[in-house]
């Protein structure tokens, strides 16, 4: 799946996290919500520390800023939640992604996408699928599957440890 997209370029929803632009696979985006009340999940870790109600279903809220080691200011007027359907080992997982701002939907041509440089990046290279170029800006294309798998595992084991410690 990702191979095809990489050769054909990508239909992307661009969002801002801190002061970087990220590109999410637009075909996987279900909807974009204004901030809604978030239910804290104790002991779940910061990455998926919340649950939200999306039209009657309970959806985990993921904060990519945790994965990329960014600051996490409280929500403001620009904050949005991007609800995505992510294919995780063949099973669809619906998750909300917190965005500091949502820009627009754009096409990123294959030619302008480069592999993530192994060095010289501030964030974990395994979480970046590629760097695209849009006008004069760089766009980070995150590898959602890897992030969710890694962070999901980490928060689960974290919760498990915390439980047995008590």
């Amino acid at each position: 799946m990702s191979d095809i997209q990489e050769t054909k370029g990508m239909h992307a929803l661009t969002i801002r996290l801190q002061d970087e632009m990220f590109a999410l696979e637009a075909t996987h985006v279900r909807e974009i919500l204004d901030p809604v009340p978030i239910t804290r999940v104790p002991n779940a870790g910061d990455f998926v520390g919340g649950l939200i109600n999306v039209r009657g279903s309970v959806v985990p809220l993921a904060d990519l800023r945790v994965s990329f080691g960014m600051d996490r200011p409280p929500p403001d007027a620009d904050t949005r939640i991007v609800v995505m359907e992510i294919d995780l080992d063949g099973e669809p997982l619906v998750a909300g992604i917190l965005a500091d701002k949502v820009y627009d939907v754009t096409d990123i041509t294959a030619a302008s996408i480069e592999d993530a440089p192994r060095v010289g990046m501030r964030w974990p290279a395994e979480f970046v699928r590629g760097i695209g170029r849009r006008d004069d800006d760089f766009v980070i294309i995150p590898d959602m599957n890897r992030i969710i798998r890694a962070e999901g595992d980490r928060s689960s084991s974290l919760a498990a440890n915390e439980r047995t410690d008590r």
Binding site: V41, A44, S57, S155
Partner: peptide
Amino acid sequence: KQLSRLHSGLKT
């Protein structure tokens, strides 16, 4: 409502 796989490790 079942919790997603992201929270399946939470036993409480």
